[in-house]
C-alpha cells in the first residue's frame, strides 16, 4: 500500500515474505517439546538470586529515598548546601531535607569546604560516629584536592586522605544543581550496590536436601 508523500521502502509483498519466512523457520525448528526449566537451570541459583536481589533492591530503593545528610558545613560550600536545602532547590524532593545535627542519625556526609589539619580529627571522628552503611560526598575542589589552598601549610590535600569518598562534585563552590547531580550519583550508587557479591552464601537447594 502506498501512502502519499512517503517513499515506499519495503513493499507489502516483501514484508509478507519476511513474515512467512519467520513462521516457516519456527515451524521447522520447534519439533521437540522444550524441557521444563528445572531440567536446564541450576535450581539453587535461581532461588538465591531471585530471593536475595529482590529484598536487597527493595531495601536499597527505600534507603536511597531517605539519605539523611549530616548538617556539616566547613566553609564557603556549606552555603550552597544550605541553598540546596531551602525553598528554591529543595532537597526534600529527594527525601533528604532532614539535615541531622548529630552524625549518629545520618548516613550521608557532605564534606562542604576546605578541610584543615586542625579540623581533620573532628572530620574523622564524625565519620566514625556515623552508623553503617554510610556514604561521603566531597563537595568543592577544596574537599577534593585542597583546591586553590592545596600548597598551604595547614590544608589537607583532599579529604580522601582522611576518610573514604564515594562521589566528588567539583566546583568552587559547585552550584546547587551540580550538588544535586552528585546526590543523584550517590542514589545510583546506593541502588546499584550488590552486597551479596563477595559473600559465600549457602545454597538454598542444599538446605532443602538436609
Amino acid at each position: 500500500m502506498e501512502v502519499a508523500g512517503i517513499p515506499e521502502v519495503y513493499s507489502s509483498r516483501e514484508l509478507n515474505l519476511a513474515e512467512g519466512a519467520e513462521i516457516e523457520r519456527l515451524r521447522c525448528t520447534a519439533t521437540q517439546p522444550v524441557p521444563e526449566p528445572s531440567e536446564w537451570l541450576d535450581e539453587g541459583d535461581i532461588e538465591k538470586n531471585i530471593l536475595l536481589t529482590t529484598v536487597e533492591r527493595m531495601i536499597h530503593w527505600g534507603r536511597h529515598y531517605s539519605t539523611w545528610p549530616v548538617n556539616f558545613g566547613l566553609a564557603c560550600c556549606a552555603f550552597e548546601m544550605i541553598s540546596l536545602a531551602v525553598s528554591r532547590f529543595d532537597i526534600s524532593r529527594f527525601g533528604m531535607e532532614l539535615l541531622r545535627a548529630s552524625p549518629r542519625q545520618a548516613d550521608l556526609m557532605i564534606v562542604a569546604g576546605t578541610v584543615t589539619w586542625k579540623m581533620a580529627p573532628a572530620v574523622r571522628r564524625l565519620y566514625d560516629q556515623m552508623p553503617e552503611p554510610k556514604w561521603v560526598l566531597a563537595m568543592g575542589v577544596c574537599a577534593i584536592s585542597g583546591g586553590t589552598f592545596r600548597e598551604s601549610y595547614s590544608v589537607v590535600p583532599g579529604v580522601n586522605c582522611i576518610i573514604p569518598v564515594d562521589v566528588y562534585v567539583p566546583g568552587c563552590p559547585p552550584r546547587p544543581e551540580a550538588l544535586m547531580y552528585g546526590l543523584m550519583q550517590i542514589h545510583d550508587k546506593i541502588t546499584s550496590a550488590d552486597t551479596t557479591k563477595d559473600l559465600k552464601l549457602p545454597r538454598l537447594g542444599g538446605a532443602r536436601q538436609r
Binding site: 566547613l74 566553609a75 569546604g113 576546605t114 584543615t116 586542625k118 579540623m119 573532628a122 586553590t148 589552598f149 600548597e151 598551604s152 601549610y153 595547614s154 590544608v155
Partner: peptide, 10 residues
C-alpha cells in the same frame, strides 16, 4: 583556627 587556610602566606 579550624578553617585556617593560610591565605596571608599564599
Amino acid at each position: 583556627g579550624y578553617l585556617h587556610r593560610g591565605i596571608e602566606k599564599l
